[in-house]
Amino acid sequence: MNIHIDFDKCCGAGQCVLAAPDVFDQRDDDGVVVLLDADPSADRLDAVREAAAVCPAAAIEVVV
């Protein structure tokens, strides 16, 4: 699994962090997503897909 983020689209809502906190975080200054793990293990796939699905800016793409 690979995760691609369009940082320009990110609005800092933080829904990705709530869905997959081991994979995503946010910058302190503006809330933009930080990718902690660009190639997480397969057991995190559901959480990462959920994070992409709930992103209000559609800034996260998951490639399996």
Results as ranks from 00 to 15, higher is better:
M1H: 08
N2S: 14
N2K: 15
N2Y: 03
N2L: 11
I3V: 12
I3C: 08
H4Q: 13
D6A: 07
D6Y: 00
D8N: 15
K9I: 08
K9Y: 06
C10R: 04
A13N: 04
G14M: 04
Q15A: 11
C16G: 02
V17E: 05
V17Y: 02
V17C: 01
V17L: 03
L18S: 08
L18G: 06
A19E: 11
A20F: 03
A20C: 02
P21N: 04
P21G: 12
P21D: 07
D22C: 00
V23H: 02
V23Q: 03
V23D: 05
V23I: 14
F24R: 06
D25W: 00
Q26E: 04
R27T: 02
D28N: 09
D28M: 06
D28H: 01
D28A: 09
D29L: 03
D29Y: 02
D30H: 03
D30R: 07
G31I: 00
G31W: 03
V32R: 03
V33C: 01
V34W: 00
V34E: 14
V34K: 08
V34F: 00
L35T: 04
D39A: 15
P40N: 11
P40R: 03
P40C: 09
P40I: 02
S41P: 14
S41A: 15
S41I: 02
S41V: 12
S41F: 00
S41E: 15
A42I: 11
A42G: 09
D43K: 07
R44N: 09
R44Q: 15
R44H: 10
R44A: 14
D46G: 13
A47Y: 06
V48D: 12
E50W: 05
A51E: 11
A52F: 14
A52C: 10
A53E: 15
A53C: 00
V54F: 10
V54R: 12
C55A: 13
P56L: 15
A58R: 11
A58W: 04
A58M: 14
A59S: 15
A59R: 11
I60P: 10
V62Y: 01
V62E: 03
V63C: 09
V63I: 15
V63W: 08
V64Y: 11
V64H: 12
V64A: 12
